[in-house]
Structures are given as C-alpha cells and as structure tokens.
C-alpha cells in the first residue's frame, strides 16, 4: 500500500496530461476534498479548451475512495459525457474496489479498465463503435 503518502496540502492540483486525442489524469496520492473538487473544475476546462475525445482517470495511486471521492469522479464522467467526451476510470486497487462494493457505491455510469493501457484501448474501441453507429449516441445509460 501507499504508506508514504504525500500530504494533499503539498500538492497544488492534479496535472491533466494530453495524450493523443485523450486527456489523462493520474492520481498518485491521498485525495483531499478540495483537490477532488479542483479536479472537477480543471478537467471540465481542459475538455473545453483541448477538444479531447476521451478522458482517462487513473486512480492506481489512490489508497482510499470514499463516497465523496467516488461521487465526484462519477460527476466528472457525467459532465464529460455531456460535453461529448467518454471517461474511463482505471487502476482501482482490489482493496478499494471491495470497499466500494461493500459500501454500495454505484459507479456504473463510469466505464472502467484494469490499467492505463487497457483504458486507452477501451476508449479507442468505444470511439470506433460510436463512429460505426449512425446515431453516434451513447445508449449505455
């Protein structure tokens, strides 16, 4: 586990990286509420200004996701979808996954992948799928 966790006070904001047509957010430390809320704003603006087609939220460094954090990640995905961007969350650790299921947190609206590679692949597949569909709308909801 991540015992030497960085105090969130030391971290200004979470970097958002442009990778080909996608935005990648990799969270590698314990999340404070403010950091999560800040991320929501930053991602929304980044989508708007970058014209990216996909968003990956890599939480492989997150040792704990409570209801607020998971709710905000879900909100980010919902906002992104409204803006025409698909979101894939990846790197949920087994312990975090078990805890979320036990709590009854519903993250069904967010697609998920095992790791960053798989997430980028999934985004590509989803985009190809959407392109072949005449409506071009996501009907998974």
């Amino acid at each position: 586990m991540h015992s030497g966790e960085l105090h969130p006070q030391d971290v200004g904001r979470i970097p958002i990286i442009r990778l080909a047509d996608n935005l990648v957010v990799s969270i590698q430390f314990s999340l404070s509420d403010r950091l999560v809320a800040q991320l929501k704003d930053d991602v929304t603006h980044a989508i708007d200004s970058s014209g990216a087609l996909g968003l990956v939220i890599d939480v492989s460094g997150v040792d704990l996701m409570d209801s607020y954090i998971s709710r905000t990640i879900r909100d980010i995905a919902l906002v992104a979808r409204l803006m025409g961007v698909l979101t894939v969350i990846c790197g949920v650790s087994p312990l975090v996954a078990i805890t979320l299921v036990e709590m009854g947190v519903d993250l069904k609206v967010v697609r998920s992948a095992l790791n960053l590679d798989a997430a980028l692949e999934l985004l590509q597949d989803l985009r190809r799928e959407a392109a072949t569909r005449s409506t071009g709308q996501d009907t998974s909801a």
Partner: peptide, 23 residues
C-alpha cells in the same frame, strides 16, 4: 490498524469509514 497487524483490506475499510464520519 497497521500497528495491531490488521489486514490491508481491514485497514482500507476502517480508513474509509473514518473518512466518511470525519467529512
């Protein structure tokens, strides 16, 4: 939890519950 030797999954469970209550 770590000091007492509780399992990693128990640690996450406890930390998450604390996070909710503290929030």
């Amino acid at each position: 939890c770590q000091q007492i030797g509780f399992s990693a999954s128990f640690q996450v469970k406890v930390a998450t519950a604390i996070s909710e209550l503290a929030r």
